[in-house]
Design a protein around this nucleic acid. Structure first.
Lengths: 126, 126, 126, 126
DNA sequence: GTGGTCTAGACCACT
DNA sequence: GTGGTCTAGACCACT
């Protein structure tokens, strides 16, 4: 799996890494149950600091996407966003303000739907 | 227009104010071209700090929703999210990571679409 | 005794196993003096790694709930939380921060008591 | 407000700091709406690293106890553990295994209740 | 060899 | 002056 980080980007490195790892999971490069590389080895591979990788891993754990087993490593969790889970709740809380903003900027229901579809396709068909 | 702030919310006051003002615009309480109340008077009405209102106004301007005319006041802008505009670009940039997260958490295209529809309806029919 | 593990839970497998074994003891499926299944056979039955079972057993031993006799097996210990024992001390150390957090989040003495009663009942009446 | 850290303790410094700050809030040294000291100044006062203070603050924010406003500071949140909140859910999840362990160690309902009351009093009457 | 924790020091954007 | 981010390097416990 190829990870590309841009130190010049507006997005901090740890965000970019989160993003790339989520894409890796979506594309199937990382499957459920797979071990992620250790923070140290991934940091070395990417030429960044261990702590930066660590921050990304912990953020992904907070979002329910991976599970960190101390002293052992990190594993991709079985995914299924159950409606009652805290992760689903958080997701809705993140989605709401963005949709509100879209509507305030004048986008209609249809427009928003097609934008969402477009973006979703981007990931699925990559 | 009635604005309700919850000091014990997870969201900071200025976010809540942004949210409420956007809803006001959506519902038509504030129409395009309308003047917003002055920073000072709104702060007094809501019993919050002037700087907090100021922060909300500037955030709304950055998002292309209102326009601040120095020494004069703030006006609701004509809303039209043109695909080339910076506001549309920013919106897409905000939407992308949330959708990516949804998919990584195991939500499918259909599920995401129905969630988006649900949330959009919540605002439109209020 | 039936053990159910959920690989997609937020809790790691070894924690779930600890939990289930403790429930088994509470319900009386496993009585004091009973032998636990061997690490190997339980791992095979549950379709999980031997090391995972091992980790659960050692954690239960550290908590004074079972006793591991090398080369022989694991036995459910006589339960009695004496106030001077290290297990009682550890328990208090685990309980304290959770109660402190509850109070800091605004829960009163009565509320905490009723919550504790509720949760205790959940196990006893299962 | 006096904060005492023990570098020799089993508990990491950031945990001790979390603990002390929660006690400070409980005792009323820090009231709702109060600003916490900046990460830098508190670190300097305590003779520890900025990052350690930072970690404590973020953990307290995750638990809903304080609110961090980037570039501005951290404030004690209005506390009230609503039953629907994610913080309440987390609390219950933390409390459950400890109670289960207590019962497995042979403590009865009455014993657990009196232990909880004892510990709660310790904080309230300090 | 792993993640957990801690330190010291740096540059950044924004109030 | 604030928190956000990043780096480099260290010791620890436990697998």
């Amino acid at each position: 799996m190829y990870i590309k980080l841009d130190p010049q980007s507006d997005f901090p490195i740890y965000s970019q890494l989160i993003h790339q790892l989520m894409e890796g999971i979506l594309k199937g490069d990382l499957k459920e149950g797979d071990m992620l590389p250790s923070v140290r080895s991934l940091a070395a591979d990417l030429g960044i600091n261990m702590h930066t990788v660590n921050k990304s891993y912990h953020e992904l754990e907070k979002r329910g996407i991976i599970q960190i087993v101390p002293k052992s490593g990190a594993v991709v969790r079985l995914q299924q966003a159950e409606k009652e889970s805290e992760h689903y709740t958080r997701l809705v809380r993140e989605l709401k303000p963005v949709l509100l903003e879209a509507m305030t900027l004048g986008m209609g229901k249809a427009e928003i739907n097609s934008l969402v579809e477009l973006l979703v396709k981007e990931y699925k068909e990559e």
